[in-house]
Design a protein around this nucleic acid. Structure first.
Length: 268
DNA sequence: CAGATATGACAAC
DNA sequence: TTGTCCTATCTGG
């Protein structure tokens, strides 16, 4: 489930499992063999997350950068390390546990300068307390692109993916097609604060649940009747099913090659 | 078993 | 807008 909350959660888990001690790194599948050879045996000093990007910081200014893309997955466990099954791009083994990485879009050893370049091309991450949302609103306010695309654009906001973008727009009562420049400053602040609340809950729970997280006061006023027995999301992948707030059939469309969902009654 | 699908990102047309 | 990458899982026959 690789939206930003998953990556932050992975950074925490990997720190707890492996940081502070030397780790053995290899690549059973082979495609990360050269990178693994550079870092194996070093101390994994820390981990970090920025948007959907995960970093393993090794002693000696070597950083392994991982981007899960659409299919990437980590598996972790306590010792002993299991026999390799499937295609394992990267495997870590420390004295407290092990980790396997499959199917990432990116897995490479970088230097601090290269990491800084990645940070520089990302927008503010709602999960980072050092984030300044102002540049994101500046981008949105002068764009005619649809809000769904802008929220998913990692150079505007780092971390939200299709589910959070879809759901936060439902909670804000805005159609996915709303042009960025139609969003008021107050409307942006509501979305930013809601993303922070939703994604922090996502980190804590390990799943996306946009129905049970408290709405902002503005959204509560618009959608006060939440079905407590409803699903984890309001509209994502619920095409044709009744809206949890008003009962209207959830609509489905396509935008920039991605499926989009919205409630024709609650969103305008 | 083949085929479709997936929470992403990028290049190429 | 389409194709490509990477892998696992779910669907239908």
């Amino acid at each position: 489930m690789p939206e930003g909350h998953s990556i932050h959660r992975l950074a925490l888990a990997h720190r707890a499992l492996l940081a502070g001690r030397p780790v053995e790194v290899d690549s059973p599948q082979g495609r990360f063999a050269e990178g693994a050879a550079l870092v194996t045996g070093r101390v994994l000093e820390d981990t970090s997350a920025y948007g959907k990007h995960l970093f393993h910081h090794y002693a000696g200014d070597l950083i392994v950068h991982v981007h899960l893309g659409l299919y990437g997955k980590f598996a972790t466990g306590a010792p002993p390390v299991p026999a390799p099954a499937g295609l394992i791009r990267m495997r870590l083994a420390g004295d407290r546990g092990w980790l396997e990485l499959r199917g990432p879009t990116a897995c490479a050893v970088l230097n601090p300068h290269e990491v800084a370049l990645i940070h520089a091309r990302l927008g503010p991450d709602p999960l980072r307390d050092d984030a300044d949302p102002a540049p994101a609103y500046a981008r949105i306010a002068r764009s005619g692109a649809p809000l769904l695309q802008l929220i998913m654009d990692q150079s505007v906001l780092a971390g939200p993916g299709l589910i959070y973008a879809t759901e936060v727009l439902f909670r804000a009562g805005l159609l996915p097609t709303t042009p960025g420049r139609a969003l008021s400053a107050a409307g942006f602040t509501e979305i930013w604060e809601d993303l922070r609340a939703l994604m922090k809950d996502g980190v804590a729970q390990g799943r996306i649940d946009t129905v049970h997280v408290r709405h902002t006061p503005e959204a509560m006023r618009r959608a006060p009747r939440v079905d407590r027995h409803g699903g984890e999301v309001y509209v994502y992948r619920r095409a044709g099913q009744p809206c949890l707030v008003c009962g209207t059939a959830v609509a489905k469309g396509t935008m920039a090659g991605r499926n989009t969902y919205w409630c024709p009654t609650c969103q305008s």
